[in-house]
Amino acid sequence: MRLLSPLSWLISPLALLTLWALVAKAGLFPVNLLVPPLEVWHSFAELLATGELQEHLSGSLSRLALGFAGGSLAGLAFGTALALSKTLEAYCAPLFHTLRQIPSIALIPMFVLLFGVDETFKVVIVAKTAFFPVALATCEGVRAIPRSHFEVAAVYRLRWTTLVGRIALPAAVPAIVTGVRVALTRAWVVLVACELLAADSGLGQMIEMARQMLRIDVVMVGVVVTGVIGFTLDFGLRRLERRLSNWQSR
């Protein structure tokens, strides 16, 4: 029974795959609307063999890395400053919270006009998407460090390096990592959307080109790879999140 129960999770995916294969084989729909799963697999293997997939993937991931690193570092710095400085808060908080409301996707046309359709536009929009969740989480994480921790530190006359390294950071980091995770997932979604709309390389562009050429098999490969990447990014940060917050009772 113990061996069987994890396997039972596979029932429905396998059933769906079988159904898909059967319906495709029966020819109820034209092939350019429903390709058999085996053909999707072949396309995947072919894209891998020619190196096309790797090329698109590295294009997308390097954009993500560049934009995300810039946006999240800026967010980290701004969020910390916002939490610590009352003056900065008075000047920046209203604008920050207003701009936060505007979804990144809605900014795509504007950024295209401002930065053109080249790399800059994609990196900037990924950075923008990453900035806001990270800044918000950092600000709240830093603010949520209990005052009493600092009082305890004062009683024991801890040096300020110890104070930051051993007390402030561990207390704020779990919240920040959660923000980083949300930001990364969103940045990935927005990047793929940008590539679908305007790009000469990248996963989104591959999907869009395949759509225009009615290569539904390639579209499906692209969709699945997009999902796997998104899942991996989220999963990795979730693991990190759990490790960093294992002192919390949850």
């Binding site: 979604v189 793929v192 579209v219 692209g222 699945v224 997009t226 989220d234």
Partner: peptide, 14 residues
């Protein structure tokens, strides 16, 4: 796991 907008090409084909 698939980003929402990632579905668009597929759904548009169908």
């Amino acid at each position: 796991q698939v980003p929402m907008l990632g579905w668009i090409p597929l759904i548009a084909l169908w």
